[in-house]
Simulated assay, not measured.
Amino acid sequence: MDTPDSPFRHVLFLNWRDTRNPEGGGSEVYIERIAAELVRIGHRVTVLCAGHDGAPPEETTPDGTRILRRGGRHTVYARAALTYLAGRLGVGRLGHRGLGRPDLVVDVCNGVPFFAPLYAGRPVLALVHHVHREQWPVVFGPWVARIGWWIESKLAVRVYRRCRYVTVSEATKSELSGLGVAADRIAVVPNGTPDVVAGPAPRTTHPSLLVLGRLVPHKRVEIALRTVAALAADLPDVELVVAGQGWWEPKLKDLAVEMNIQDRVRFAGFITEEEKHAVLCSAWLALTPSIKEGWGLTIVEAGARATPTVAFRNAGGVAEAMVHDETGMLADDEEEFILQVRNLLADDVRRKAMGEAARAHAAQFTWEAAGARFANLVAEIATAPGAADRQSIRR
C-alpha cells in the first residue's frame, strides 16, 4: 500500500470499455498501454469499465493492471459512481478489496463523461481522445445528437472547469480550446506504436487495400467500398480486406452486394494480433476513411509495417499520425481520396518509398515515452496545491 509520502500513486481510470470488449478500439488500447507503463514505473492502476459477455467482473492483467467490470454499455456511468463511493466508504465487497480512494481519477470522456468531479473527492484528469461534434448526428438521431453534443460541449466543460485535461493530439487540444477549455490546462500525450513482434510478411501479388477498426457508422467504411467500386474497371483484381467487427457490419455487407463488389471485399471480422500483423504487412495501402480520430493508431500500426495510409485531412489527429505526401496521403473530399488511392496503387516506386518513410515515422512514437509523459502528469496533478486538501482521508 502506498504511503502518503510515496512517489507512487494509485491511479483509477474510468472508461466505458476495455480491450476485451467486442466494441473496444484504439481508446481502450491507449488506456491499457498507458496503465501498463504506469504499473511498470511503480504506480498502482485500476481500470473500471463496463462488463460484457465472457469477461469476469474482476481480473488483473499480465501487466499488473486491475480491471473492474461493472454495469453495461449504458449503465456503466452510474455503476462507476456507486462503485467508487462504496470503495471510498469502505463498504461492500469493493470497499473490502481496497478500491479505497485513489490519488488520481482519470475520467475518460468518450462523448459521454463520467462526471467524476461531482463525487470523486480527488484530483480528476479528463482524458479526451477527440471531440464528437461530427459523430453525434451520424450515430444518433437529431434529438439525441443535440442532447449529446450539449452534454459534451457545454455541461462537461462546466463540470470539469477546475480539472486538467489530457489528449492525444494537438488537433483535439485545439478543439477543446474552442469549447472554452484553457490551453494551459491541456496536456498532449500521443499514442505509442504497438510492438511488431513478428517478421515481415510478403505483399499480395495483386492490388490490395485494408481497413482496420470497429465497424460503426462514423468510421465510414462505405467510402472504402465506393473506392473499390470506382477502381474495379481499371483494376479488376483489386481487393479490400475489412478487419474488425461492429453492429454496422450487416449494412456494409449489404452495400457491397448492392455495388456488386462482394467478390472483391473480404470481411475478416475479429482478427488476432498475428492475423493483424499479416494483413498490415500484405496490404499495398491502408485506408482510414473515418470522420474523426483522436490520433490514428491504425495509421502508425500500418506504418510500422511500411504500409502507407490514405485518410482525410479534416479528421482530427490523423494529420499528426502521418506526414502528408511523405508517409501517406490526406484528402479533402471523397473524390480526392479515391484519386489518391488510384495513383498510389499505380506507382510502385512512390508507394514503397512512402512505406519506408512511414516505418521511420512510426518508430518515433513509443509507449515508454508516452507512459513517462503521462507519469509526469500524474505526479504534477497529485502534488499540485490543493490536491492534499482533496486527499485528506488516506487509504
Rank of each mutant, 00 (worst) to 15 (best):
N314A: 06
A353Y: 00
M322Q: 14
E335G: 12
A331L: 05
E326L: 13
I338R: 12
T327F: 06
R305N: 06
T366M: 03
R359C: 11
D325S: 11
E356I: 06
A346N: 11
G303Q: 08
D348L: 13
V310Q: 01
P308T: 11
Q340P: 03
F312H: 07
T307D: 05
F312Y: 12
G316E: 07
D325G: 04
M322C: 12
P308D: 01
A362Q: 09
R351N: 11
A331R: 08
A362V: 10
T309Y: 05
T307N: 11
T327C: 02
R342D: 12
A346T: 11
L297R: 05
E326A: 15
A357F: 07
W367S: 01
D333R: 02
G303K: 02
G355T: 09
D333C: 10
F337K: 05
G294Q: 02
M329Q: 03
G328A: 09
D333N: 15
A321T: 12
G296H: 08
E356W: 13
E368Q: 10
W367K: 06
E335Q: 14
E301I: 03
A319P: 00
G316S: 04
M322L: 15
E334S: 15
T307A: 05
G303N: 10
M354A: 04
G355N: 14
A331V: 02
D325W: 03
A306C: 10
